[in-house]
Simulated assay, not measured.
Amino acid sequence: MHKVTKAASTALLLVIIVVCLIYLKSILVPLILAAIFYLIVVEVRTMISGMISLKEHKLPIWLQNLMASLTIFGILFVVVKIMSVSIQNLSESMSHYDGNLQLMEDKLNALFDINITNSLNKMVGDTNFTSLLRTVLSSVTGLFGNAFTILLYIVFLLLEESGFGDKLKAMYPKDSDYVQVMKLLTRVSNLVSSYLTLKTFVSLITGVLSYLVLVFVGIDAPFFWAAIIFILNYIPTIGSLIATLFPAFFIIIQTAEPTLGLVVLLAVGAIQLIVGNFVEPKLMGNSLNVSSLVVLIALAFWGTIWGVIGMILSVPITVLMIIIFGEFESTRRIAILLSETGNIGAPQIRTNLDDDFFFDETVQN
């Protein structure tokens, strides 16, 4: 009876957590994105500190943070500015796309001797492409809507950094406990930072190569579509597929030439295939140790509750779960289940912290 009660309590708590994740989305998503940007700032300031040395003295941490932040936000400002111009150009060109869509439709009707409009209407009903494209563009623009909130979080994370060690020391007075907790936090930070750095590098390669292809075929706003490919490449599995279909479909609408769509589909698809199956595994190896099935489930779960941002964050969140769950005996089996190989290493944190976890008796029994 006690086991049933404990299992029911655990299930109820999980439901409460999921409900909180859904209803606190507007708070949690900017905070998580700010934490990711904070890790990026730490990576960049480490690079800057390594490149700039003042003989026996290091640069002050506030100066490193300032230089890293200005570098990152300078790059983001340029990218957002170019994206804004691209979106404006697309909006101004929309009036031509419906005409091209009708022209392509007439070509297909003549080629296959069918009425493609009636066939499509039976499946999806009447669709106004211009309205659809405006919706997509407004959604992309909305990604920058929380920029100020995220920036505010980043500033306070950087300010809190200086006193965090003292707080942690007060929480764990024993030196051994303090060292073990610091090891865990350092491991989490290093692995997530490594994933984000390598994934960004791989996405950048994919985006640049795709940009060259899109410029060659003459697509409108090639930087915009290359940026979409770059962003969607963070989404496991389906991201690369969607990123390939978007520009291929758009070039058909723009030019009313299905052949160009096929060229883009094959060229960008080949880039995604080569980078995703050869370059990315070579750089990342098996360091993430996440089951492919778990990645798909995490993608569906986080995508359902947080949308596109949830899909992008699904892998880092899963990696965090494996690392943290693997540090406690009461949740270690869950970490093994989520991992790819089942080998998650030995726990590095003290075992008497296990009592703090609600999984304790349920999992062990």
Rank of each mutant, 00 (worst) to 15 (best):
F216E: 11
T135S: 13
L185A: 11
V308P: 02
L204T: 13
V319D: 05
L63E: 00
S210M: 01
M51P: 00
A170H: 05
T318H: 06
N277K: 12
V215M: 09
E43S: 14
L33E: 06
D354P: 10
I219Q: 01
V188P: 01
V264M: 04
A8N: 08
K183G: 11
M284Y: 03
L103N: 15
L103S: 14
V208T: 07
L28R: 08
S91D: 14
N190F: 08
A110Q: 10
N365D: 09
E361K: 15
S84G: 10
T351W: 02
G239C: 14
S291H: 06
I252C: 10
A221S: 15
L120P: 07
N146W: 09
K25C: 02
F223L: 15
M83R: 05
Y234L: 02
K58Q: 15
L241T: 14
A110H: 11
F278G: 00
P236H: 05
N286S: 14
T341E: 12
G165P: 04
S69R: 00
E329N: 06
M123K: 15
I323F: 01
A243V: 03
D177V: 01
G239A: 09
P60F: 11
L143A: 07
K169C: 02
E56M: 08
L265W: 06
M1I: 10
G342C: 06
N100L: 03
H57Y: 11
P222H: 11
Y172S: 12
F230Y: 12
V264P: 03
E56C: 03
W62A: 12
N343G: 02
N277C: 02
L66V: 07
I251D: 03
G269L: 11
S139W: 09
L283Q: 07
L337W: 13
P236T: 11
P222E: 08
P236V: 13
G145S: 15
V19E: 08
I16P: 01
V279G: 04
H96V: 10
L158E: 07
I40Q: 12
Q254D: 10
D175P: 05
F129H: 07
I317S: 07
T186C: 02
L288Q: 06
N128S: 15
I238T: 03
V18M: 08
L59C: 10
S189L: 01
L90G: 09
F301Q: 01
A227E: 07
L232A: 01
Y153N: 08
G303A: 09
I40T: 13
A110Y: 02
V213G: 03
T130G: 13
H57F: 14
Y97T: 12
T149L: 14
I61P: 00
G307C: 13
I271E: 05
Y23E: 10
L152N: 07
L152A: 11
M47L: 15
I87E: 06
D355Y: 04
L132W: 02
T318M: 06
V155I: 12
K282H: 08
L159P: 06
P347S: 09
G342W: 04
M94E: 14
L13N: 10
V124P: 01
Q272C: 00
